[in-house]
Amino acid sequence: MIEIMRMELVQVVREKSYLFGLLLRSMRYVFLMYLIVRVWHIRNPLGGAYYLLASGIMLSWTVIFAFGTRTYQEKIQRTLDTIMVSPSPLLRVLIAKNLCGLICGTLFLLIFLAVARAFVDQAFILFAPWPFAFYLLSCLGIFALSLCVSLASALNWSLRSFVGSLVPLAYILSGISFPVELLPQPVHWLAWISPVYWPIQGLKLSLKESGGATIGHFGLSALSVAWYLILAVSVVDLLVRRFTRYGEWVNF
């Protein structure tokens, strides 16, 4: 598993255009957060530190998601076929590759917050036990979502653009950049099924000085993420079944 992760990381580092694209994609969230704060004047008890944290979290989500979507590339290169010939379960390989994204995402966040520390004292507040636990849950949510997206796009090209659009939606509906309560009620309900909404609510609570998240909040967040993880595993299973039925990754 470690060898697979290492090779995945080596490949990403060697793909300079990919790295550059990743950096650009990450930076747009920092810019988005800046716009939100400047234009909408949304206040948060943590002030500027919160918006730096939020930018960092979105940056790490982007990295995790970018690793997840590499599965489609493997389909094109037919390396997925060679994996299918081997006795290693596809799920194990995909988890190893995506875990790499999880680690890199957290590393990116760490670097971002280390830079942010120069400007805001509370930048490292995210690494307190409760906030960090919620942060990890949110990453797992994005990890599951990226797995679903990449596998769905491996199944069907036209599905790719649709499921790809779910990711920015998940970012918006997570409530990380602004309170979802500001949006119309039906959209608010939609946010409840987002894989990152509950972890972010928990994170926000745990960051508040007066409040604080409870085990209940954590349980609810874990449940919402677990549902997505189960969905991702089911999609892998579906993909393998389809592959052994048609002998190739199916495009309708």
């Binding site: 697979i4 060697r14 994996i83």
Partner: peptide, 22 residues
């Protein structure tokens, strides 16, 4: 040229696929 990782060396490709066979 399909079924190989282009951004890995030949040796790394072999090591990767050996990992798949444990």
């Amino acid at each position: 040229d399909q079924g190989l990782y282009w951004n890995l060396t030949g040796r790394e490709n072999l090591a990767y696929f050996m990992e798949l066979y444990r």
